[in-house]
Simulated scan of single mutants.
Amino acid sequence: MFVTQLLTLIKKDFLLEWRQKHTLFGVMLYVGCTVFVLYMMAGQPESRIWNALFWIAQLFVTVNTVAKSFLQEGEARTRYYFTIAAPVQYIIAKMVYSLAMMLVMMFISLVLFNVMLGSPLIRPAMYVGVCCLGASSLSLLFTFLSAIAAQARQNAALMAILGFPIAIPLLMILSNLALGAVSNVLQEGWWGMALMMLGMDVLIIALSVILFPFLWKE
Rank of each mutant, 00 (worst) to 15 (best):
residue 33 C to Q: 11
residue 118 G to H: 02
residue 16 L to N: 11
residue 58 Q to V: 02
residue 180 G to D: 10
residue 149 A to V: 12
residue 73 E to R: 02
residue 216 W to C: 05
residue 12 K to M: 10
residue 42 A to L: 14
residue 77 R to M: 11
residue 180 G to M: 05
residue 99 L to C: 08
residue 198 L to Y: 05
residue 141 L to W: 00
residue 50 W to D: 01
residue 110 L to G: 02
residue 132 C to R: 00
residue 106 M to I: 06
residue 9 L to H: 02
residue 112 L to P: 03
residue 152 A to K: 14
residue 6 L to D: 02
residue 79 R to F: 06
residue 188 E to L: 12
residue 1 M to T: 11
residue 160 A to L: 13
residue 135 A to F: 00
residue 120 P to M: 08
residue 72 Q to H: 11
residue 92 I to C: 04
residue 72 Q to W: 11
residue 183 S to C: 07
residue 145 L to W: 09
residue 197 M to Q: 05
residue 91 I to F: 09
residue 214 F to D: 08
residue 42 A to P: 03
residue 62 T to E: 04
residue 23 T to C: 04
residue 124 P to D: 06
residue 18 W to K: 14
residue 30 Y to C: 10
residue 104 V to R: 03
residue 49 I to D: 05
residue 134 G to P: 01
residue 49 I to V: 14
residue 124 P to G: 05
residue 150 A to C: 09
residue 9 L to A: 10
residue 171 L to H: 08
residue 151 Q to P: 00
residue 17 E to Y: 07
residue 150 A to D: 08
residue 80 Y to P: 00
residue 46 E to S: 12
residue 106 M to A: 15
residue 113 F to D: 02
residue 109 S to L: 04
residue 194 A to W: 11
residue 109 S to K: 04
residue 133 L to T: 00
residue 52 A to Y: 07
residue 92 I to A: 13
residue 94 K to N: 10
residue 167 A to T: 07
residue 133 L to W: 00
residue 175 S to A: 13
residue 212 F to I: 01
residue 144 F to L: 09
residue 89 Q to A: 07
residue 35 V to F: 01
residue 193 M to V: 05
residue 5 Q to Y: 12
residue 22 H to W: 15
residue 127 Y to G: 01
residue 128 V to P: 00
residue 44 Q to H: 13
residue 116 M to R: 06
residue 143 T to I: 01
residue 218 E to F: 12
residue 117 L to G: 07
residue 37 V to R: 04
residue 123 R to N: 13
residue 200 M to F: 12
residue 192 G to I: 05
residue 24 L to D: 08
residue 146 S to T: 07
residue 202 V to I: 15
residue 138 L to A: 04
residue 174 L to M: 06
residue 169 P to T: 12
residue 57 A to R: 01
residue 82 F to M: 15
residue 124 P to R: 04
residue 32 G to H: 02
residue 43 G to C: 05
residue 197 M to R: 03
residue 152 A to Y: 11
residue 42 A to R: 11
residue 99 L to A: 12
residue 80 Y to C: 10
residue 79 R to C: 07
residue 168 I to V: 14
residue 167 A to P: 00
residue 105 M to S: 09
residue 105 M to A: 15
residue 186 L to H: 04
residue 200 M to K: 01
residue 110 L to D: 08
residue 189 G to W: 01
residue 39 Y to H: 14
residue 100 A to Q: 01
